[in-house]
């Protein structure tokens, strides 16, 4: 899974997207906040959502407790 290293830690782009998703936002908002290309954000959000780290409501994504917990766990 490209968002998560084999040791379970998040890759840096996933951390940036989760940080950006502390406040709910559209993928374009998260791309702007994280300074990542929009396609990377779309791709990562699918994986993060599958892993329960972000939740999508009406097209807006927000980090879940699980996602925030992973952020707190360090790189």
């Amino acid at each position: 899974m490209p968002c998560v290293n084999p040791d379970g830690t998040l890759v840096s782009s996933a951390r940036k997207i989760l940080e950006a998703a502390r406040t709910a936002g559209l993928p374009a908002d998260l791309a702007e906040r994280s300074r990542l290309p929009l396609y990377r954000v779309h791709s990562a959000l699918r994986e993060l959502a599958d892993a329960g780290m972000v939740l999508e409501v009406d097209g807006r994504y927000q980090a879940t407790e699980e996602g925030l917990g992973r952020l707190g766990a360090g790189p």
Partner: peptide
Amino acid sequence: THGVVRLSDFRDS
């Protein structure tokens, strides 16, 4: 090389 992508991920660009 940047993970799994769909063509639709590039929508709006």
